[in-house]
Design a protein around this nucleic acid. Sequence first.
DNA 1: TATAATAAATGTAATATTTACATTTAATAA
DNA 2: TTATTAAATGTAAATATTACATTTATTATA
Lengths: 241, 241
Amino acid sequence: MIFKKKPIVAFPPKDFYRLDHKMYVATDCIILGYDSNNLKLLLFQRNLEPFKGEWSLIGTFVHLDESLEEASERVLEQTTGLTNIFMEQTFTYGGLKRDPGYRCVSIVRYALIRLDEHDTKLAKEYHAKWFSLDELPNMILDHQQMINDALEILREKAKKQSIGFELLPKKFTLPQFRRLYESIYQKEIDPRNFRKKVLSLDILTKLEEKDKSNSKKGAFLYTFNALKYGKNFASKAGLDF
Amino acid sequence: MIFKKKPIVAFPPKDFYRLDHKMYVATDCIILGYDSNNLKLLLFQRNLEPFKGEWSLIGTFVHLDESLEEASERVLEQTTGLTNIFMEQTFTYGGLKRDPGYRCVSIVRYALIRLDEHDTKLAKEYHAKWFSLDELPNMILDHQQMINDALEILREKAKKQSIGFELLPKKFTLPQFRRLYESIYQKEIDPRNFRKKVLSLDILTKLEEKDKSNSKKGAFLYTFNALKYGKNFASKAGLDF
DNA sequence: TATAATAAATGTAATATTTACATTTAATAA
DNA sequence: TTATTAAATGTAAATATTACATTTATTATA
């Protein structure tokens, strides 16, 4: 067989595994939490060149002895203290010029954490700060794009899976749950319709307790029922609004 | 600031851009076409070690002087002759052991092409063969997983976008269109319901011509109306069945 | 030229889902 | 006791989905 053009990898000639094809492989981590009615994002202020003083996602080079998942989980643990966290890959960014000086592709994953469970001391150490999505600072490189893409994917995910499971505290109120979805979908959701749909999924357990931090009347607390969740969330409609 | 653990990339020490973090970066291409009522996948039989004689997706190393997109488009053009094709990234695979002998991450994109437009001579040259999804051969490495993931993403995509635009010939019949969706969703779709929904989107132009290759009566041919498509497909429901 | 065969084309009623909308209630603070 | 506030709640209309069977156009054949 004769190659008309440059050979491709399905048929690699012996000299194809060449050093000059190697690149840096990084992973960037979009850490999302939910607090006081807003979806928030953990950003880091760099304390070294390049881009010293500027804001960025947290990332790392992927080491040769770890998987992509291990790399992003390492970063997440180092900066939040958390393990066993919901993370999902979004896209890989590999533009020629995306990082000045050296060629580097970056695999992005987003993480959904419970704000009240993360190690704030670590966050401080790493010069990290939580930002509401509507007041993000300028970020380095293509990080804003990464965030936009991740939020779009999160929105799709939220339709099919109760993202609240990951983001809300163990006990939460329906208005809190609703406001989470409002901040994901960036639109108001009618409280009666939200309540109707969520309760119809039959994935929650209502507690006797009330949370009175937001009103005099107080709102009943709920927990997710993992068992019911697994059984009942298969519904086609899910949590689309 | 003192690092308690290994430093991470937001604060890279000078020696961090080290050669030993570099990896091979590949891209694998899932080439999908639609023919005689079946979604089909172009696979390649390797003619060199490693894995000589086995089937695989077509891929390439990403060159230092090209973007990820350019790399996969290069492969697609080399093997099908096609340019300007719908391609979308799925996931990046970077398990430690996914490729024996060297560490390599692979970014996967799928391409939707019109079978009747691709260069069959090239396909032959590259030892390529079209397979129906239900009779795929064993493939090397994690390629089966890549395909499974891509099909899941394609299914979601098909709900929100008329995949037919990319896969069907310029002129097509409604039964043809329906069978495409049946083979994407892997289930039967009621012809009356399909027709009703598709026509309600108002994105097609009905032609006078009939295609009589499948029946004595013949089925009317349609084309996509790109203009209407852009305007009218915003519908929430889309093509979910 | 009549008939058989075949896939294409078509409509409707029942059910389920989504949307829109306003009042009452429980608790606290004044 | 009253005012205030957010939580809780129900219903009707509109829309979307599903289920289902007959007629039609054409060709091939008897």
